[in-house]
Design a protein around this nucleic acid. Structure first.
Lengths: 273, 273
DNA sequence: ATAATAGTGTCTATCAGACATTATCTG
DNA sequence: CAGATAATGTCTGATAGACACTATTAT
């Protein structure tokens, strides 16, 4: 059978040779990473930010990330940038959402593919590259408010969150808006990425085993419960938590102090179904 | 306080004026839409495909979609392309996933932001633009196989699906691979977009009211149950289905024939919580 | 009239939520 | 020893799963 030709009489290989990639304007695309961890004493979640070393938003705190290269996937770019800018590697990485508002970057047309990383050990992070410095911030988040704080650096970034539901025929949407509450703010629309990703994490948390990516391989049940309470934003009953978690874990036989209190407790590890 | 300057001594506005957008190579970005509906007699799901009118993959069936413009969001592009190529508008549209393998398009570096559309009425669709023609295909999907068929056009496209689980330390992944089973196949990596989106839909289906976007505003319970069974891929018990769905619906007082059988049945409508 | 299917009643197992109680550990 | 917290027992109500049965409708 004859090779198909288009309206200009070209075969596919002829078309590809003559294809002009410059015909349409193209956006730059970055992979930005929301890296989450838990504070050593399990008193709050931690989020990794970098201080921007160049324009735009020079000196502002931002999510680590950078431009995707032609030879790599977005996932590979996210892993590469995370390691380059903070030294973190071999962590759980998942694509969350792609942000595309045309005016979201003052330089030019830039889309951002947001990734969420879950980190079980808050390694010391060091800035490099585009980033002056990298640091873990306390992340305090509720349905009404989000704060990112680093006491050592004296930085406090807060936004109020308002959620609105609206409906369009049978089509139901939920929207939220973040309103700045402090002088110091995040670069770009990164606060939106954080809120969207956290809501995503919360929704997935109850029906998956994502929690175990945030805690070391050996842990105590009081610590694990505190972690669940941090993410879900509510207290859990110990008994119910334990019956829920029981099929997923097994005792190591060891005993050790919990990080969230300083009492001895049995040690467990995750078993995969 | 002085305006901050970068290592070249530029302020932000000076930097932005001199910013060279051509420094890094940029990808083209498309919005592609998986539009789902239900067959009139509720015997299977339907998916909207277009026949490509130009290279590459000329003459092959593909998802509707096209390049995102500099003045619009990906959501707006998806809505626009769907209407341009098929005439469908005012439908539920949700971003699913962004596909970024560098070699996924033979022309050049192209990323695809995939959207899922849920359509409650299978309006007659007409091709235009890049698309020779648009048509609804029967979508038959199981954990092992996916088929897209249009008997009028005599087209049958099938792939076998294999799922693999693998683990990387505490990090657990699930992957699937689609293997061609027929001569005729979809353009690009669109089969991946379809499978990924459908898995997403299935996961969300049980914990949301997405179903009502696939059925008209007035419906019978037998029809609604058949729709749930189609998406979930399993039989449901009538009693349990009705107690589950009861809080979300109210009777209109009318009676009419179901589409899935030809018996009279009470008519209901969706009520929002 | 009969077969098919719409609609209802009910039983059971499981699980989330809620307290109460006992055991153990730290200071 | 006292106060705190780890660990366990048990009660309740809601919900998913499973059948059985009656009512209604198309042919």
């Amino acid at each position: 059978m004859a090779e198909p030709r288009d309206k200009n009489g070209l075969t596919e290989s002829e078309f590809l040779q003559s294809y002009n990639a410059g015909k349409y304007e193209r956006p730059s695309v970055t992979a930005d990473i929301l890296a989450l961890g838990v504070k050593e004493d399990f008193s709050c979640l931690k989020i990794l930010l970098i201080k921007r070393g160049g324009h735009p938003y020079i000196g502002k705190w931002a999510l680590p990330g950078g431009f995707i290269r032609k030879t790599e996937t977005a996932y590979q770019a996210a892993a590469r940038e995370l390691e380059e800018e903070t030294g973190l590697k071999d962590v759980y990485l998942e694509q969350i959402y792609t942000f595309t508002k045309p005016e979201r970057d003052p330089r030019t047309w830039v889309m951002s593919i947001a990734y969420m990383a879950l980190v079980s050990e808050l390694k010391h992070v060091n800035g490099s590259d585009d980033a002056d410095s990298a640091a873990w911030f306390d992340l305090i988040i509720s349905p009404e408010k989000i704060s990112l704080q680093n006491k050592d650096l004296g930085v406090n970034i807060s936004y109020a969150i308002e959620t609105k539901k609206f409906q369009n025929g049978a089509i139901k949407y939920e929207n939220w808006v973040a309103t700045p509450q402090t002088q110091e703010l995040l670069a770009f629309d990164h606060i939106e990425i954080i809120i969207e990703s956290f809501l995503n994490l919360k929704a997935k948390f109850e029906h998956s085993d994502l929690a175990f990516n945030l805690i070391g391989s050996k842990f105590t049940l009081p610590d694990l419960q505190v972690l669940y309470e941090l993410i879900l934003g509510k207290k859990l009953y110990k008994t119910n938590f334990r019956t829920m978690i029981a099929p997923k874990i097994k005792a190591t036989g060891e005993k050790r102090k919990s990080a969230s209190s300083n009492k001895m407790s049995a040690e467990y590890e995750y078993i995969d179904a």
